[in-house]
C-alpha cells in the first residue's frame, strides 16, 4: 500500500525533548506530529486515564459542623495513589455484588476531638484497609513536609466523625475527581506566525500580549513577514503536572496506551471480519439497520480499557514496558 506522508529528511516520526522533569511535572517539546495527534494525546491525558478516587462513603457518625454530603464531596477530591491501577478492576466489570477488594479500596476515617481548641483532620487520617490489589493503590497522596496531606475538616471539643470510604477506579470523563492532572499546558507557535490567534488589543498587540517563554525556542518573525499559508502547527510545548496519584511520565505513557487501545478497538471492529455488508459493487440494496450480529458482541459492560490477559504495563520486568502494541497481546479479548 503506497501512501505519501510528507517526509523531509529526518522527519520520520514523533520526537520528544524533555526540558524539565521533576516528581511533580514534566515539561517537554513534541515535534514531528500534527496538531490533531498532539491534541488527542492532551485530551486523553486530561480525561481518560484511570486513577483511584473515593466514590462511595458510608457516614457512620458526623457531629461536625459540615453536612455529610459536603464532607463526602471533599473526600472524593482527595488524590489517592494510583500506581499500577491496572491491578484494580472497574466495579462494573467485577463479579461482586456491590464492591470487593478486587475492584475497590476501603479507607476508614475516624476522628474525635477531646481537647479544647480546634482539631484538624487530614488525608493522613484516612487509613487504607487490607486486602488491596497492590501495596500502592488507594493510599492518600501526602507530599507536604509535615506530612499531613489535604485538610478534610475541622472539629472542636466533643465533635466526632466516623466514615467508611470506598475508593474505586474510574476516569475523569465520568467525574473530574479521577483526573490524573489538574491541567495540561499546551502551546504551539508562540510568536503567532500562523495567525491562529487574532489578538484583541487597545493600542498595540505586541505590547499587550507578551510572548511566552516558549518564544525563546523559536525564531522571532521578521518585521513585515507574511503568513505562511501552508504552515503546519508545531512544535508543541506540553507541560503535564500531576495531581499526585501518578508520576508525570507514567501519565504520559498511560495516555499513549489509552489512545492506542482506543485505536486498537477500532481496528478490531473494522478489520475483525463480518461486521457489515462488504464494500463491493452491489452493496447498495435495501439493508436492515445494524442488528446485533453476534460476532464479538461482548454483552454490554466491558470497558474499552480492559486489560485482562495482557500484562500490566508497568513494573513488569526489565524490558521496555511499552514496546508491544496493545492489540497483539491479549488474544482478541476485546
Amino acid at each position: 500500500m503506497d501512501y505519501d506522508i510528507p517526509m523531509d529528511g529526518e522527519d520520520t516520526g514523533p520526537t520528544v525533548t524533555i526540558r524539565e522533569a521533576s516528581p511533580a511535572a514534566v515539561d517537554f517539546i513534541l515535534r514531528h506530529v500534527d496538531l490533531a495527534f498532539a491534541n488527542s494525546l492532551r485530551r486523553v491525558i486530561m480525561s481518560e486515564i484511570p486513577t483511584m478516587a473515593i466514590d462511595l462513603v458510608e457516614v457512620k457518625k458526623n457531629t461536625s459542623v459540615l453536612a455529610d454530603e459536603f464532607i463526602c464531596h471533599r473526600l472524593g477530591l482527595i488524590p489517592l495513589n494510583s500506581k499500577s491501577v491496572d491491578d484494580v478492576l472497574y466495579t462494573r466489570d467485577c463479579d461482586c455484588d456491590q464492591y470487593c477488594e478486587n475492584c475497590s479500596v476501603t479507607l476508614s476515617l475516624y476522628a474525635r476531638c477531646t481537647s479544647d481548641g480546634v482539631m484538624r483532620v487530614f488525608a493522613r487520617d484516612l487509613v487504607p484497609q487490607d486486602p488491596r490489589a497492590n501495596e500502592w493503590v488507594g493510599v492518600p497522596v501526602i507530599k507536604d513536609d509535615n506530612p499531613d496531606g489535604a485538610l478534610i475538616l475541622k472539629l472542636t471539643k466533643g465533635q466526632e466523625v466516623e466514615m467508611k470510604c470506598i475508593a474505586k477506579k474510574g476516569i475523569a470523563k465520568e467525574h473530574a475527581k479521577w483526573a490524573p492532572t489538574a491541567a495540561v499546558g499546551f502551546e504551539y507557535d508562540p510568536w503567532n506566525k500562523l495567525k491562529h490567534l487574532d489578538y484583541w488589543y487597545e493600542e498595540s498587540a505586541k505590547d499587550e500580549w507578551p510572548v511566552s517563554r516558549n518564544g525563546e525556542w523559536e525564531d522571532q518573525p521578521q518585521e513585515g513577514e507574511g503568513v505562511a499559508l501552508d504552515g503546519q502547527p508545531g512544535p508543541f510545548y506540553v507541560n503535564v503536572e500531576t495531581v499526585g496519584g501518578l508520576e508525570p511520565d507514567v501519565i504520559v505513557q498511560q495516555g499513549i496506551k489509552v489512545l492506542q487501545q482506543k485505536l486498537a478497538g477500532v481496528i478490531q471492529e473494522l478489520a475483525g471480519g463480518d461486521n457489515q455488508a462488504e464494500t463491493n459493487g452491489d452493496g447498495f440494496g435495501p439493508r436492515s439497520p445494524e442488528g446485533p450480529s453476534g460476532g464479538y458482541d461482548q454483552g454490554g459492560y466491558t470497558t474499552p480499557f480492559d486489560q485482562r490477559g495482557g500484562a500490566s504495563a508497568w513494573g513488569g520486568g526489565g524490558m521496555t514496558p511499552y514496546g508491544a502494541t496493545p492489540y497483539g497481546q491479549n488474544g482478541g479479548n476485546w
Binding site: G13, P14, T15, V16, T17, I18, A21, V26, F28, L30, V33, F37, L41, D249, V252, Q253, I256, K257, L259, Q260, L263, A264, I267, T320, Y322, G323, T325, P326, Y327
Partner: peptide, 15 residues
C-alpha cells in the same frame, strides 16, 4: 498506533 509506539519509546528514552 505505530506512531504512538514510537512516541512512547522516544519519551522513555528522553525521560
Amino acid at each position: 498506533v505505530g506512531e504512538l509506539d514510537q512516541l512512547s519509546r522516544e519519551f522513555t528514552k528522553e525521560w
